[in-house]
Amino acid sequence: MSIILKIWIAYLLDLILGDPYWFPHPVRFIGKYITFIENKIYSLKNKKVWGGVLAFTVILSTVVLSYYIARMSEFLEIFFLYTTLATKSLGAEGIKVYKILKSGDLQKAQKELSYLVSRDTGEMDEVQVVRSTMETIAENSVDGIIAPMFYAFLGSFILIDGVSMALPLAMGYKAVNTLDSMVGYKNDKYIDFGMVSAKVDDFFNFIPARLSGLIIIPIATFLLGMGIKKPLKIFFRDRKNHSSPNSGHPEAVFAGAIGVQFGGKTKYFGKYFEKPTIGDKLKEFQCEDIKKCYKIMFMTSFVGIVLFTAFIKLV
């Protein structure tokens, strides 16, 4: 079975199954592994160095283990490739917040959103909940879909002893992303210890974020009838208006397509920050805008896998 077919099967499995709550997802084990190592070394001096050791150990272990999993069985390879993608689960989480807001239970929506974002949600009004939900869908369209897909296809070019590196690179990316989500914060605890993890995540998202913002998401918005001119205009103007060197790229296209403005006053770890704005405020945020984000995200996943496949076939 070709590696391209395996990736397509994994993609379809993700669309059908998503990430059931009862399922022992590999990312959870990566997270536990990170916590285990962190507990052993966090108290040591020179936190930047030991934080680097954490990142190197977790990423290398994940890549090596994934290589041997791919070597063992094609079915295991497909299964673990499926777990690197998060199209259905990301969409489901966004729609869950949408449905709660439609029911009128703002407090419950705040609570549900808190599971998706690192910002403080307890004092958010409905507009802020909608904005934050949309921002996380936009950002994670790269982290949870396009980036692992990109590294799976990139790995398909590489064979080591007859084994494709598609799964090792895709799972290695998930390790990178999990490290950043757990220790890559600029707070007192992780500003030094998580520095390497954050920088590595920035590096590995550099190309996927730009491919998504410049090509993949604009095509998706065009196919959905949202146009392509406005999203690209906002992309080129506002893609750097973000503390992350990568997150602004997808967010700019989503904001441009829907006609809203991301950024602004946001609370993290008990402190308010004024985030740079992305997009033009052509209208106020509405609950239905979450569904628009949902549609863009799903179309983005489809456009991404089609374009990556076409590229592989042409090379």
Rank of each mutant, 00 (worst) to 15 (best):
residue 4 I to F: 10
residue 6 K to P: 02
residue 8 W to L: 07
residue 11 Y to C: 14
residue 12 L to R: 09
residue 20 P to R: 05
residue 21 Y to L: 13
residue 28 R to L: 12
residue 30 I to S: 05
residue 34 I to H: 00
residue 35 T to S: 13
residue 36 F to N: 00
residue 41 I to S: 05
residue 43 S to Q: 01
residue 45 K to E: 05
residue 47 K to H: 14
residue 48 K to C: 00
residue 51 G to K: 07
residue 51 G to E: 11
residue 54 L to Y: 01
residue 56 F to I: 05
residue 61 S to D: 01
residue 65 L to E: 02
residue 67 Y to C: 02
residue 69 I to N: 00
residue 70 A to Y: 02
residue 71 R to Q: 14
residue 73 S to C: 07
residue 74 E to V: 06
residue 76 L to I: 01
residue 76 L to W: 02
residue 77 E to S: 11
residue 77 E to I: 03
residue 85 L to I: 14
residue 85 L to Y: 13
residue 86 A to E: 08
residue 89 S to A: 07
residue 89 S to P: 02
residue 90 L to I: 14
residue 91 G to E: 04
residue 97 V to H: 10
residue 99 K to L: 07
residue 100 I to W: 12
residue 105 D to W: 02
residue 106 L to C: 11
residue 110 Q to V: 14
residue 111 K to S: 09
residue 115 Y to A: 09
residue 116 L to N: 15
residue 116 L to K: 15
residue 119 R to H: 08
residue 119 R to V: 09
residue 121 T to S: 10
residue 122 G to P: 00
residue 133 T to I: 09
residue 139 E to H: 02
residue 147 A to W: 02
residue 147 A to F: 04
residue 152 A to E: 00
residue 158 I to T: 09
residue 160 I to Y: 14
residue 170 A to E: 07
residue 176 V to F: 02
residue 177 N to M: 04
residue 179 L to V: 01
residue 179 L to I: 01
residue 182 M to N: 01
residue 188 D to V: 07
residue 190 Y to K: 10
residue 190 Y to A: 07
residue 193 F to S: 02
residue 197 S to K: 10
residue 200 V to N: 11
residue 202 D to E: 10
residue 204 F to M: 08
residue 207 I to H: 04
residue 211 L to Q: 08
residue 212 S to E: 00
residue 220 A to K: 05
residue 223 L to K: 05
residue 224 L to S: 06
residue 224 L to Y: 05
residue 225 G to W: 04
residue 225 G to P: 08
residue 234 I to Q: 04
residue 234 I to W: 06
residue 237 R to P: 01
residue 238 D to F: 10
residue 246 N to W: 13
residue 247 S to D: 08
residue 250 P to N: 05
residue 252 A to D: 05
residue 254 F to H: 04
residue 257 A to Y: 06
residue 258 I to C: 15
residue 259 G to A: 11
residue 261 Q to P: 03
residue 262 F to I: 11
residue 262 F to A: 10
residue 264 G to N: 05
residue 264 G to P: 06
residue 264 G to V: 06
residue 265 K to Y: 14
residue 266 T to E: 10
residue 268 Y to K: 08
residue 270 G to Y: 03
residue 272 Y to W: 09
residue 273 F to Q: 09
residue 274 E to D: 15
residue 276 P to W: 15
residue 279 G to F: 13
residue 281 K to I: 14
residue 281 K to M: 15
residue 282 L to W: 09
residue 284 E to G: 14
residue 288 E to A: 13
residue 289 D to S: 09
residue 290 I to E: 13
residue 290 I to A: 12
residue 291 K to Y: 12
residue 291 K to M: 12
residue 292 K to V: 12
residue 298 F to E: 14
residue 300 T to A: 12
residue 304 G to E: 07
residue 306 V to M: 12
residue 310 A to K: 15
residue 310 A to C: 15
residue 311 F to K: 08
residue 312 I to D: 13
residue 313 K to W: 13
residue 315 V to D: 11
